[in-house]
Design a protein around this nucleic acid. Sequence first.
DNA 1: ATGGTAGCATCGCTA
Length: 258
Amino acid sequence: MRIVTWNVNSLRARLERVEDWLTDVQPDVVCLQETKLADDAFPALTFEAHGYETVHYGQGQWNGVAILSKVGIADVVANFADGIEPDPDARIITATCGGVRVSCCYVPNGRSLDDDHYTYKLSWLDRLLEHVGRDTSPDHDVIVTGDFNIAPEDRDVYDIAKFENATHVSVPERERLAALCDWGLTDLFRRQHADAERVFSWWDYRNGDFHKGNGLRIDLVLGSASVAERCEWSVVDRNARKGKQPSDHAPVIVDLRD
DNA sequence: ATGGTAGCATCGCTA
């Protein structure tokens, strides 16, 4: 089973590129973030023509997440499954695809450490852990994936000195990512490439950052132990960041043995 | 140099 995550930064602006990429890569499960679409604008028929069932949870303008699957989509939960006040943003959707419980996440950016949005980011990550714990169990096949807006380690950052007192690398958000891992999840790309340095999944559009190699690895596929054991390959497809009208994120691909 | 680019419901916000 080939599963991928990709922050497409507007599915309306990116649909042709996404379609071409799906044709080339042939993933079984696709987790998309930042579709920036309302549910009634989601191009379900377009993906159906590529062989995918789809679920989308969007709000238009900002955020929006989707799962595409060739191996079934069951027991869909939009937003958090914690039974309290729904998060106002469309940032998470969960479904069972090919026997794996998949959560597709768009973690809040945080903006800056003194911004209310950073507090929201931390509480969102607390709710994600709560959600996963209620929704499933670490001894099941579980994947929690998406744009985490967190670089797990300093080597996932092009120049850590530039991120002093910045989001994406701060101790509190990394602690929350570590809590997900303590629950029973593993960063599958890092597991596959333990010594990899300077492999990034996002590059700012500005300053020619992509061409300078100035990026962050913030798009993650976390898997439970049974999933991690099945993981035989993982790559960031940085070719998808090249060319005309790219997303600022590259897709991350993970292959699992059947 | 506190810049730059891209997307959106576009002149202001989000990333």
